[in-house]
């Protein structure tokens, strides 16, 4: 692929560009969610696009694609995610935003029993090209706090309860670059994919992103730093913590390798095992609660 000189985009801008480019090439793609645009129906008063989602990743899409394809929804996660499932079974490719992953309790059946199982239960007769985007984690991280003050119902990770479900692909990008590539891959996938977008990265991360459309493979981890002595495994924002740790360790003469897991399900066991087979040591950095967690799954893989 030839690429132009990469510009710096924010994490949210990269996702926005991914969705925009895909919507231009495929009229079957729609975006639904609470305030994915904002000020719905108020264009006659001069109000459009008032919000753009929690990470502003969908801001501006309504001015290009209109309210027919950028659908602000009422607060009804079970209803509009279900509509997304039904639309995906009947000819559309919906991208549904659940504002925060903490809200999946309101629509978990649509994820667990409906979207993830349709292809299997129906013996392969339907495709389910559905993307669920949701923000996770904490906003904080300015060297004073990793919290952010949002409390226990707006700071969770919860990816373990998603990765547990067969049939659902669970993707956690860590940079603006891989956020764009993985989002495009998710949109082109014919099955359900949930993308967890870290709030801190969404609000703070920036990085080089080619203007061209490109995909990155779902189901592949990436070794982002080569090392001999220990494998540090990170998910989403924690990959950056791993890299910072690797810098610190380097000053102490320890050569750490950093693996960015990127897809939690299906897990790229091969890349992780290959790394651990060389370093013989595995440290998993995870911000989720430990019981039945993806971290434990990674330890199990590496053991």
């Amino acid at each position: 692929m030839t690429t132009t000189a990469a510009r710096e985009l924010s994490f949210g801008q990269a996702i926005n560009e991914a969705i925009r480019q895909e919507m231009r090439r495929d009229p079957k793609i729609i975006v639904m969610g609470e305030d994915v645009a904002g000020a719905a129906g108020r264009a006659h008063l001069g109000f459009v696009d008032a919000w753009g989602g929690p990470l502003r990743a969908t801001r501006g899409l309504i001015t290009e694609f209109g309210p027919e394809r950028i659908l602000d929804t009422p607060i009804a996660e079970m209803g509009f995610l279900g509509a997304g499932v039904g639309a995906a079974m009947s000819g559309l490719r919906p991208i549904v935003e659940i504002m925060f992953v903490d809200l999946i309790g309101c629509c978990y059946d649509q994820i667990m029993n409906q979207a993830a199982k349709m292809h299997y239960m129906m013996g392969g007769q339907v495709e389910l090209p559905l993307v669920i985007r949701t923000a996770y984690g904490t906003r904080g991280g300015d060297n004073r706090t990793y919290g952010g003050g949002a409390g226990a119902q707006h700071s969770q990770t919860l990816y373990a309860v998603l990765a547990h479900i067969p049939g659902l692909k669970v993707v956690v990008p860590s940079t603006a670059y891989n956020a764009k590539g993985l989002t495009i891959s998710a949109i082109r996938d014919n099955g359900p994919v949930i993308i967890l977008e870290h709030k801190f990265l969404g609000l703070r991360a920036k990085g080089p992103v080619p203007e061209e459309s490109y995909t990155l493979p779902i189901g592949s981890a990436q070794i982002v730093r080569r090392g001999r002595d220990v494998t540090l495994c990170g998910i989403g924002r924690m990959t950056h913590i791993c890299s910072e740790a690797a810098d610190s360790l380097s000053a102490e003469g320890i050569d750490a390798e950093v693996v960015d897991v990127l897809t939690l399900s299906p897990l790229d066991e091969g890349t992780i095992l290959e790394s651990v087979s060389r370093t013989r040591r595995l440290v998993v950095v995870d911000e989720d609660t430990p019981v039945c967690s993806v971290a434990r799954e990674l330890f199990g893989t590496g053991a």
């Binding site: 729609i30 394809r69 279900g82 639309a87 995906a88 649509q110 409906q114 239960m121």
Partner: peptide
């Protein structure tokens, strides 16, 4: 579109199919 034993969920899927028809 499917027999669906999680009560009520099929209703949301029908609404999605209708949305698909409209779009």
């Amino acid at each position: 579109l499917g027999v669906n034993p999680i009560v009520g969920m099929g209703v949301t899927h029908a609404v999605g199919a209708a949305l698909s028809a409209k779009v």
